[in-house]
């Protein structure tokens, strides 16, 4: 089983303006950002930058699944990029999925219309790191989490970062993204759930994505869940420190 610890590498592709590889919960995504660059005449917006997101699967050509993810990402990223600073330009985000977790108990089919929500947090996080690496001005950073609600004997439990197997048996899936100012930015759900369950999931996601700003790391009740907000910060701190280091 792939580790739950997030890992990231920044600015490792030479021709893109910014790039990042991010792996978390069994997924690995390589992201590249080019921008602000020239935009095609027909897409041009007179007062703001066009954000173009391209999601490419590891195997097979992209279909409706990828288009759906692209549209979700595009609307999310438009909220955090300062698009008004770059009128008549294009900011192009390319996300290449390289590893996605496999279910040992099922032979995967390429063309099946599988669920696409579990990969969304990794895509958002990769896009964010790539944007930061490309030094695109942002209003805030973003942290995302995926939760599965599994029902056993009437009682429903919430699993953060579920595995492929857990997703298969889950009743509903929820993806939440919060900005660094703890505002809800994205909310996607699928499956069957009650309002009460959604509220619980929301509270769990909020605890997960917006940890209280304590300096001590004692309060990790859930134990192994990664704190992505601090992860983004520390990754960039390390990167900046090594970039500014005078040899």
């Amino acid at each position: 089983m792939a580790s739950h610890d997030p890992e990231a590498r920044l600015s490792h592709l030479q021709s893109a303006d910014g790039s990042a590889t991010f792996s978390h919960a069994g997924y690995t995504v390589v992201g590249a950002v080019n921008g602000p660059i020239e935009v095609q005449r027909r897409d041009e917006l007179p007062e703001e930058a066009v954000v173009d997101v391209i999601v490419r699967p590891a195997a097979g050509v992209g279909g409706t699944r990828e288009r759906h993810l692209e549209s979700l990402l595009q609307s999310t990223l438009r909220q955090i990029i300062l698009i008004n600073n770059f009128p008549r330009t294009l900011i192009q985000v390319t996300l290449q999925v390289t590893v996605s977790p496999e279910n040992e108990y099922v032979n995967a089919k390429l063309s099946q219309a599988a669920t696409n929500l579990p990969i969304l947090p990794t895509l958002i996080q990769t896009a964010l790191l790539a944007l930061l690496s490309a030094a695109i001005p942002l209003t805030a950073t973003v942290t995302a989490a995926v939760l599965a609600i599994v029902a056993d004997d009437g009682a429903s439990t919430i699993i953060v970062d579920p595995t492929a197997r857990e997703i298969q048996v889950s009743r509903s899936l929820h993806v939440f993204a919060f900005t660094s100012r703890d505002e809800l930015l994205l909310n996607e759900s699928e499956g069957e759930f009650t309002m009460q369950e959604w509220d619980n999931a929301f509270a769990t996601a909020q605890r997960q994505c917006c940890p209280a700003p304590t300096s001590d790391d004692v309060d990790m009740e859930g134990g192994s869940q990664a704190d992505l907000k601090n992860f983004t910060r520390s990754t960039l701190e390390t990167k900046t420190a090594s970039d500014l280091y005078w040899k």
């Binding site: 021709s15 893109a16 390589v30 590249a32 390319t94 290449q96």
Partner: peptide, 15 residues
Amino acid sequence: ITTELSPMASPAFEV
């Protein structure tokens, strides 16, 4: 065998 050059390799490549 499928090859697709994405803008990741160079902004000159189009989808």
